[in-house]
């Protein structure tokens, strides 16, 4: 449904997207995960024919974005990162406009508008001006506007940014429902949890480069299923820990950074109590003893050496 090969997009000398390739199958919910400035919006802009690619090719819903922009435009829906609505019009007027733009009219338009208002739970605020909406309401209407014409492919650019957990939950549920009904979705976010919860496949993008790509569970497995245990340890006690740890079947070496020891273990249930006992016996502080399950954050950290949210 979406196929990108060697996509490069430069703004002057800034390389916003640097040779990215990936594809999204029909009916898939693909997550493009990356921090601020990673190139997510730029990628979507190229895919939605808003920006010409510097290099590379992209095909969306069977149409080449460079050669058949009109074909692409008819088949896609875009929910921009910004609230792209007419604040001086009401919710219904906004949806009517976006519907008409795609050729809806009369009864069809009316029905679709009411349907979408219901879907995003704004039926009661249909006449209210968007300028008086809360952030969450605007986000929901922003989403509805991209769905009016029933697109084949939906681009969602951080559709939950800046809203509370409840509103976010509603939006995610709606997206999941749409996807279950067969809509292909490209979802960008910098929230790990969202990508983990929502997406089938994930691409991790950083500074314009795709640093990881694949099935969500495969990606996590890539890091292994070992847990990471970390705790405070004065450097002079490291040798003792190293001797002790030989019987714990560690993955890799014990790391010691900024007064903190980290070890990756296969059998947490056995090792953790032993560490606790050892620390207690040595009169060392027990606070800061932590166990990390592997997740995308770990993956991201491993891949880039940086935390996702910095």
């Amino acid at each position: 449904m979406i196929e990108i090969k060697g996509l490069v997009k430069k703004y002057g000398s800034t390389v916003a997207v640097d040779n990215i390739s990936f594809s999204v199958e029909r009916g898939e919910l693909f997550g493009l995960l990356g921090p601020n400035g990673a190139g997510k919006t730029t990628t979507i802009s190229v895919l939605s024919t808003l920006l010409p690619a510097t290099e590379g090719a992209a095909v969306v819903a069977g149409c080449d974005v460079a050669k058949d922009a009109d074909g692409v435009r008819r088949r896609i829906g875009v929910v921009p990162q910004e609230i792209a609505l007419y604040e001086d019009l009401g919710a219904r007027d906004n949806l009517n406009f976006w519907g008409r733009l795609y050729g809806l009219s009369g009864k069809d338009l009316q029905r679709r508008t009411e349907e979408m208002l219901e879907a995003v739970e704004l039926g009661e605020h249909a006449r209210q001006k968007v300028s008086s909406f809360s952030g969450g309401m605007k986000r929901r209407l922003n989403l509805a506007a991209g769905l009016m014409h029933g697109p084949e492919v939906l681009f969602l650019d951080e559709p939950t940014v800046g809203i509370d957990a409840q509103a976010r939950g509603k939006i995610l549920a709606l997206i999941r429902r749409l996807n279950e009904d067969g809509l292909t979705v490209l979802y960008t976010t910098h929230y790990l949890e969202e990508a983990e919860q929502l997406c089938d496949r994930i691409g991790v993008i950083d500074r314009g480069k795709m640093v990881a790509l694949g099935d969500k569970d495969d990606l996590i497995r890539q890091i292994g299923d070992e847990d990471t245990i970390s705790f405070l340890l004065p450097p002079e006690r490291l040798d003792e820990l190293l001797t002790l740890s030989t019987k714990w079947d560690l993955v890799g070496d014990v790391e010691h950074r900024r007064g903190c020891a980290r070890l990756r273990v296969r059998d947490t249930a056995r090792v953790l109590p032993e560490i606790q006992m050892w620390l207690a016996g040595q009169q060392l502080p027990l606070d800061h003893l932590e166990v990390h399950r592997p997740n995308l954050e770990t993956l991201y950290l491993n891949l880039t050496g940086r935390a996702l949210r910095e």
């Binding site: 802009s45 808003l50 009109d70 921009p80 609230i83 733009l101 795609y102």
Partner: peptide, 14 residues
């Protein structure tokens, strides 16, 4: 500035 133009241009109008 409010990005509606960009959104319009991703639709079936040139």
């Amino acid at each position: 500035e409010n990005r509606t133009l960009a959104r319009i241009l991703t639709g079936p109008v040139n």
